[in-house]
Design a protein around this nucleic acid. Structure first.
Lengths: 153, 153
DNA sequence: TTGTACTAGTTCGAAGTCGAATTATATAAT
DNA sequence: ATTATATAATTCGACTTCGAACTAGTACAA
Protein backbone atom coordinates (compact mmCIF):
# COMPACT_ATOMS: atom_id res chain seq x y z
CA UNK A 1 0.00 0.00 0.00
CA UNK A 2 2.50 2.58 -0.64
CA UNK A 3 0.71 5.52 -2.14
CA UNK A 4 1.82 5.59 -5.75
CA UNK A 5 0.45 9.08 -6.22
CA UNK A 6 3.38 11.34 -5.48
CA UNK A 7 2.83 14.63 -3.82
CA UNK A 8 2.40 17.62 -6.05
CA UNK A 9 5.59 19.29 -4.96
CA UNK A 10 7.84 16.24 -5.25
CA UNK A 11 9.20 17.14 -8.65
CA UNK A 12 10.11 20.76 -7.89
CA UNK A 13 11.84 19.68 -4.70
CA UNK A 14 13.93 17.11 -6.52
CA UNK A 15 14.78 19.58 -9.23
CA UNK A 16 15.86 22.16 -6.72
CA UNK A 17 17.89 19.49 -4.98
CA UNK A 18 19.78 18.49 -8.11
CA UNK A 19 20.33 22.11 -8.99
CA UNK A 20 21.96 22.81 -5.63
CA UNK A 21 24.02 19.65 -5.92
CA UNK A 22 25.26 20.74 -9.31
CA UNK A 23 26.25 24.21 -8.20
CA UNK A 24 27.96 23.05 -5.02
CA UNK A 25 29.85 20.49 -7.02
CA UNK A 26 31.07 23.17 -9.36
CA UNK A 27 32.03 25.52 -6.55
CA UNK A 28 33.89 22.80 -4.68
CA UNK A 29 35.78 21.83 -7.78
CA UNK A 30 36.87 25.41 -8.31
CA UNK A 31 37.86 25.70 -4.66
CA UNK A 32 39.89 22.50 -4.70
CA UNK A 33 41.71 23.18 -7.89
CA UNK A 34 42.64 26.67 -6.80
CA UNK A 35 44.56 25.06 -3.93
CA UNK A 36 46.03 22.01 -5.59
CA UNK A 37 49.32 22.84 -7.29
CA UNK A 38 50.58 22.04 -10.73
CA UNK A 39 47.47 21.12 -12.65
CA UNK A 40 46.41 18.46 -10.18
CA UNK A 41 42.65 18.06 -10.45
CA UNK A 42 39.89 16.81 -8.21
CA UNK A 43 39.87 13.37 -9.85
CA UNK A 44 43.62 13.13 -9.24
CA UNK A 45 43.22 14.03 -5.62
CA UNK A 46 40.24 11.74 -5.18
CA UNK A 47 42.32 8.79 -6.32
CA UNK A 48 45.24 9.64 -4.06
CA UNK A 49 42.94 10.08 -1.12
CA UNK A 50 41.12 6.86 -1.78
CA UNK A 51 44.33 4.87 -2.05
CA UNK A 52 45.48 6.26 1.24
CA UNK A 53 42.21 5.99 3.14
CA UNK A 54 41.22 2.56 1.96
CA UNK A 55 44.38 0.80 0.82
CA UNK A 56 46.69 0.99 -2.13
CA UNK A 57 47.47 -1.84 -4.49
CA UNK A 58 43.90 -1.82 -5.81
CA UNK A 59 43.01 -2.49 -9.41
CA UNK A 60 41.72 0.30 -11.67
CA UNK A 61 38.56 -1.70 -12.19
CA UNK A 62 37.80 -1.77 -8.49
CA UNK A 63 38.39 1.93 -8.16
CA UNK A 64 36.20 2.73 -11.15
CA UNK A 65 33.38 0.93 -9.39
CA UNK A 66 34.04 2.74 -6.14
CA UNK A 67 33.89 6.13 -7.86
CA UNK A 68 31.03 5.31 -10.23
CA UNK A 69 33.19 6.47 -13.09
CA UNK A 70 33.90 4.88 -16.49
CA UNK A 71 37.10 2.91 -16.85
CA UNK A 72 38.30 5.07 -19.70
CA UNK A 73 38.15 8.17 -17.54
CA UNK A 74 40.12 6.53 -14.81
CA UNK A 75 42.79 5.42 -17.24
CA UNK A 76 43.34 9.04 -18.05
CA UNK A 77 43.44 10.13 -14.41
CA UNK A 78 45.89 7.39 -13.49
CA UNK A 79 48.15 8.29 -16.41
CA UNK A 80 48.32 11.84 -15.09
CA UNK A 81 49.21 10.70 -11.59
CA UNK A 82 51.86 8.35 -12.88
CA UNK A 83 53.38 11.06 -15.07
CA UNK A 84 53.72 13.20 -11.96
CA UNK A 85 55.33 10.35 -10.05
CA UNK A 86 52.55 10.22 -7.46
CA UNK A 87 51.54 6.63 -8.12
CA UNK A 88 53.09 3.52 -9.62
CA UNK A 89 51.26 1.03 -11.80
CA UNK A 90 52.43 -2.56 -11.46
CA UNK A 91 51.31 -5.78 -13.09
CA UNK A 92 49.02 -7.79 -10.91
CA UNK A 93 51.02 -10.97 -10.21
CA UNK A 94 47.81 -12.96 -9.81
CA UNK A 95 46.17 -11.90 -13.05
CA UNK A 96 48.00 -10.68 -16.13
CA UNK A 97 44.98 -8.76 -17.38
CA UNK A 98 44.84 -6.41 -14.49
CA UNK A 99 47.14 -3.99 -12.73
CA UNK A 100 47.69 -2.65 -9.27
CA UNK A 101 47.92 1.00 -8.31
CA UNK A 102 50.47 1.84 -5.63
CA UNK A 103 51.23 5.15 -3.99
CA UNK A 104 54.78 6.41 -4.17
CA UNK A 105 56.41 8.21 -1.26
CA UNK A 106 56.02 11.40 -3.25
CA UNK A 107 52.36 10.61 -3.68
CA UNK A 108 51.82 10.15 0.04
CA UNK A 109 53.64 13.36 0.86
CA UNK A 110 51.72 15.25 -1.80
CA UNK A 111 48.39 14.07 -0.47
CA UNK A 112 49.25 15.04 3.10
CA UNK A 113 50.37 18.45 1.99
CA UNK A 114 47.22 18.92 -0.08
CA UNK A 115 45.08 17.94 2.90
CA UNK A 116 46.79 20.65 4.90
CA UNK A 117 46.02 23.30 2.31
CA UNK A 118 42.43 22.20 1.94
CA UNK A 119 41.98 22.13 5.69
CA UNK A 120 42.37 25.90 5.66
CA UNK A 121 39.43 26.28 3.33
CA UNK A 122 37.40 23.79 5.31
CA UNK A 123 38.11 25.71 8.49
CA UNK A 124 36.91 28.89 6.85
CA UNK A 125 33.70 27.23 5.75
CA UNK A 126 33.31 25.63 9.16
CA UNK A 127 33.26 29.05 10.74
CA UNK A 128 30.12 29.87 8.87
CA UNK A 129 28.34 26.55 8.72
CA UNK A 130 27.33 24.55 11.72
CA UNK A 131 28.98 21.14 11.79
CA UNK A 132 25.71 19.75 13.09
CA UNK A 133 24.05 20.72 9.81
CA UNK A 134 26.71 18.84 7.91
CA UNK A 135 26.15 15.80 10.08
CA UNK A 136 22.44 16.05 9.45
CA UNK A 137 22.91 16.06 5.72
CA UNK A 138 25.55 13.41 5.40
CA UNK A 139 23.48 10.29 6.10
CA UNK A 140 20.59 11.65 4.03
CA UNK A 141 22.91 12.26 1.10
CA UNK A 142 24.38 8.80 1.46
CA UNK A 143 20.90 7.37 1.32
CA UNK A 144 20.04 9.30 -1.83
CA UNK A 145 23.26 8.13 -3.41
CA UNK A 146 22.57 4.51 -2.56
CA UNK A 147 19.02 4.60 -3.87
CA UNK A 148 20.09 6.30 -7.09
CA UNK A 149 22.92 3.87 -7.50
CA UNK A 150 20.54 0.93 -7.24
CA UNK A 151 18.07 2.56 -9.61
CA UNK A 152 20.61 2.49 -12.44
CA UNK A 153 19.51 -0.16 -14.93
CA UNK B 1 36.88 36.35 18.75
CA UNK B 2 35.81 33.57 16.48
CA UNK B 3 37.38 30.35 17.62
CA UNK B 4 39.87 29.54 14.90
CA UNK B 5 40.41 26.05 16.26
CA UNK B 6 37.99 23.84 14.36
CA UNK B 7 36.75 20.55 15.66
CA UNK B 8 38.88 17.53 14.93
CA UNK B 9 36.34 15.85 12.68
CA UNK B 10 35.43 18.91 10.63
CA UNK B 11 37.69 18.04 7.73
CA UNK B 12 36.58 14.41 7.30
CA UNK B 13 32.95 15.46 7.41
CA UNK B 14 33.46 18.06 4.73
CA UNK B 15 35.39 15.62 2.59
CA UNK B 16 32.69 13.01 2.89
CA UNK B 17 30.15 15.67 2.04
CA UNK B 18 31.90 16.73 -1.15
CA UNK B 19 32.42 13.12 -2.11
CA UNK B 20 28.70 12.40 -1.84
CA UNK B 21 27.90 15.57 -3.73
CA UNK B 22 30.23 14.53 -6.52
CA UNK B 23 28.79 11.05 -6.87
CA UNK B 24 25.18 12.19 -6.73
CA UNK B 25 25.95 14.79 -9.34
CA UNK B 26 27.39 12.13 -11.60
CA UNK B 27 24.48 9.77 -11.07
CA UNK B 28 21.91 12.49 -11.69
CA UNK B 29 23.64 13.51 -14.86
CA UNK B 30 23.53 9.96 -16.16
CA UNK B 31 19.88 9.66 -15.18
CA UNK B 32 18.90 12.89 -16.89
CA UNK B 33 20.75 12.29 -20.08
CA UNK B 34 19.33 8.81 -20.44
CA UNK B 35 15.90 10.44 -20.67
CA UNK B 36 16.63 13.54 -22.67
CA UNK B 37 16.49 12.86 -26.40
CA UNK B 38 18.82 13.76 -29.18
CA UNK B 39 22.04 14.60 -27.39
CA UNK B 40 20.43 17.19 -25.18
CA UNK B 41 22.52 17.48 -22.04
CA UNK B 42 21.96 18.61 -18.49
CA UNK B 43 23.39 22.08 -19.18
CA UNK B 44 21.00 22.42 -22.11
CA UNK B 45 18.05 21.44 -20.01
CA UNK B 46 19.13 23.63 -17.11
CA UNK B 47 19.10 26.65 -19.37
CA UNK B 48 15.68 25.87 -20.80
CA UNK B 49 14.27 25.28 -17.37
CA UNK B 50 15.75 28.46 -15.98
CA UNK B 51 14.39 30.56 -18.84
CA UNK B 52 10.95 29.14 -18.24
CA UNK B 53 10.92 29.27 -14.46
CA UNK B 54 12.45 32.68 -14.03
CA UNK B 55 11.88 34.56 -17.26
CA UNK B 56 13.31 34.51 -20.76
CA UNK B 57 15.00 37.41 -22.47
CA UNK B 58 17.89 37.29 -20.03
CA UNK B 59 21.48 38.00 -21.02
CA UNK B 60 24.06 35.21 -21.14
CA UNK B 61 26.09 37.09 -18.55
CA UNK B 62 23.23 37.04 -16.07
CA UNK B 63 22.66 33.37 -16.58
CA UNK B 64 26.33 32.54 -16.19
CA UNK B 65 26.19 34.21 -12.79
CA UNK B 66 23.04 32.35 -11.83
CA UNK B 67 24.62 29.00 -12.71
CA UNK B 68 28.09 29.76 -11.40
CA UNK B 69 29.51 28.73 -14.72
CA UNK B 70 32.09 30.40 -16.96
CA UNK B 71 30.78 32.51 -19.78
CA UNK B 72 32.70 30.48 -22.33
CA UNK B 73 30.90 27.32 -21.29
CA UNK B 74 27.54 28.98 -21.56
CA UNK B 75 28.33 30.28 -25.04
CA UNK B 76 28.78 26.69 -26.06
CA UNK B 77 25.58 25.51 -24.41
CA UNK B 78 23.56 28.33 -25.97
CA UNK B 79 24.98 27.58 -29.39
CA UNK B 80 23.75 24.00 -29.03
CA UNK B 81 20.28 25.10 -28.03
CA UNK B 82 20.07 27.57 -30.87
CA UNK B 83 21.22 24.96 -33.37
CA UNK B 84 18.33 22.77 -32.21
CA UNK B 85 15.87 25.62 -32.55
CA UNK B 86 15.00 25.62 -28.85
CA UNK B 87 16.09 29.18 -28.17
CA UNK B 88 16.63 32.38 -30.12
CA UNK B 89 19.44 34.85 -29.50
CA UNK B 90 18.56 38.48 -30.16
CA UNK B 91 20.50 41.68 -29.85
CA UNK B 92 19.75 43.56 -26.67
CA UNK B 93 18.14 46.78 -27.89
CA UNK B 94 19.37 48.62 -24.78
CA UNK B 95 23.01 47.56 -25.02
CA UNK B 96 24.75 46.52 -28.19
CA UNK B 97 27.36 44.52 -26.30
CA UNK B 98 24.94 42.06 -24.88
CA UNK B 99 22.28 39.72 -26.15
CA UNK B 100 19.00 38.32 -24.98
CA UNK B 101 18.05 34.68 -24.88
CA UNK B 102 14.47 33.86 -25.78
CA UNK B 103 12.66 30.56 -25.79
CA UNK B 104 11.03 29.44 -29.02
CA UNK B 105 7.72 27.64 -29.04
CA UNK B 106 9.63 24.46 -29.81
CA UNK B 107 11.82 25.13 -26.80
CA UNK B 108 8.87 25.50 -24.47
CA UNK B 109 7.24 22.35 -25.75
CA UNK B 110 10.49 20.44 -25.49
CA UNK B 111 11.00 21.48 -21.89
CA UNK B 112 7.47 20.49 -20.92
CA UNK B 113 7.86 17.13 -22.55
CA UNK B 114 11.23 16.58 -20.86
CA UNK B 115 9.72 17.44 -17.49
CA UNK B 116 7.13 14.76 -18.06
CA UNK B 117 9.77 12.14 -18.76
CA UNK B 118 11.88 13.14 -15.80
CA UNK B 119 8.86 13.15 -13.53
CA UNK B 120 8.70 9.39 -13.94
CA UNK B 121 12.20 9.00 -12.56
CA UNK B 122 11.49 11.43 -9.78
CA UNK B 123 8.39 9.50 -8.82
CA UNK B 124 10.43 6.32 -8.65
CA UNK B 125 12.98 7.95 -6.40
CA UNK B 126 10.23 9.50 -4.32
CA UNK B 127 8.90 6.05 -3.54
CA UNK B 128 12.10 5.21 -1.77
CA UNK B 129 13.08 8.50 -0.24
CA UNK B 130 10.99 10.48 2.16
CA UNK B 131 10.09 13.89 0.83
CA UNK B 132 10.59 15.23 4.33
CA UNK B 133 14.27 14.26 4.11
CA UNK B 134 14.56 16.21 0.89
CA UNK B 135 12.95 19.20 2.49
CA UNK B 136 15.35 18.93 5.37
CA UNK B 137 18.36 18.98 3.10
CA UNK B 138 17.27 21.67 0.70
CA UNK B 139 17.68 24.76 2.89
CA UNK B 140 20.91 23.40 4.33
CA UNK B 141 22.31 22.85 0.85
CA UNK B 142 21.23 26.32 -0.18
CA UNK B 143 23.07 27.71 2.78
CA UNK B 144 26.25 25.83 1.92
CA UNK B 145 26.00 27.04 -1.64
CA UNK B 146 25.57 30.64 -0.56
CA UNK B 147 28.49 30.55 1.85
CA UNK B 148 30.75 28.91 -0.70
CA UNK B 149 29.68 31.39 -3.31
CA UNK B 150 30.61 34.28 -1.08
CA UNK B 151 33.92 32.67 -0.15
CA UNK B 152 35.14 32.82 -3.73
CA UNK B 153 37.76 35.50 -3.96
C1' DT C 1 44.54 -28.33 -27.00
C1' DT C 2 41.51 -25.90 -28.99
C1' DG C 3 37.60 -23.02 -29.06
C1' DT C 4 34.38 -19.98 -26.96
C1' DA C 5 33.17 -16.71 -23.81
C1' DC C 6 34.48 -13.45 -20.60
C1' DT C 7 37.21 -9.73 -18.23
C1' DA C 8 40.89 -5.75 -17.45
C1' DG C 9 42.78 -2.12 -19.44
C1' DT C 10 43.91 1.00 -23.34
C1' DT C 11 43.09 3.58 -27.54
C1' DC C 12 40.34 6.38 -30.46
C1' DG C 13 37.33 9.91 -31.59
C1' DA C 14 33.59 13.04 -30.84
C1' DA C 15 32.01 16.22 -27.69
C1' DG C 16 32.27 19.26 -23.62
C1' DT C 17 34.88 22.50 -20.48
C1' DC C 18 36.96 26.75 -19.51
C1' DG C 19 41.14 30.28 -18.94
C1' DA C 20 43.07 33.64 -21.75
C1' DA C 21 43.11 36.48 -25.68
C1' DT C 22 40.16 39.00 -28.86
C1' DT C 23 36.26 41.81 -30.75
C1' DA C 24 32.64 44.98 -30.29
C1' DT C 25 30.30 48.23 -27.70
C1' DA C 26 29.57 51.45 -23.78
C1' DT C 27 30.87 54.87 -20.29
C1' DA C 28 33.76 58.37 -18.14
C1' DA C 29 37.16 61.88 -18.11
C1' DT C 30 39.27 65.58 -20.03
C1' DA D 1 35.51 64.77 -29.83
C1' DT D 2 39.18 61.85 -28.17
C1' DT D 3 41.13 58.76 -25.31
C1' DA D 4 41.10 55.45 -21.63
C1' DT D 5 38.81 52.13 -19.18
C1' DA D 6 35.36 48.73 -18.52
C1' DT D 7 32.08 45.21 -19.92
C1' DA D 8 29.48 41.38 -22.98
C1' DA D 9 30.23 37.86 -25.78
C1' DT D 10 33.01 34.95 -28.80
C1' DT D 11 37.07 32.48 -30.34
C1' DC D 12 41.04 29.76 -29.53
C1' DG D 13 43.49 26.04 -27.73
C1' DA D 14 44.76 22.82 -24.26
C1' DC D 15 42.69 19.58 -21.67
C1' DT D 16 38.96 16.30 -19.85
C1' DT D 17 35.28 13.02 -20.45
C1' DC D 18 33.60 8.73 -21.87
C1' DG D 19 31.17 5.22 -25.30
C1' DA D 20 32.76 1.98 -28.45
C1' DA D 21 36.18 -0.65 -30.55
C1' DC D 22 40.26 -3.04 -29.64
C1' DT D 23 44.12 -5.86 -27.30
C1' DA D 24 45.77 -9.00 -24.06
C1' DG D 25 44.98 -12.37 -20.81
C1' DT D 26 41.91 -15.89 -18.22
C1' DA D 27 38.51 -19.68 -17.57
C1' DC D 28 36.11 -23.32 -18.66
C1' DA D 29 34.20 -26.83 -21.73
C1' DA D 30 34.42 -30.50 -24.76
Amino acid sequence: MADDRTSKDTLPVWFAFFTEIGIINQLSRALFEARLPDGVTVPHFTVLNHLMRVRDGQTPQRMAEAFQTPKASLTNTLAGLEARGLIEMRRNPDDGRSKQVWLTETGRAFRDQAIGLLAQDAAELAEQIDLADMKTMLPLLENVRKVMDKARD
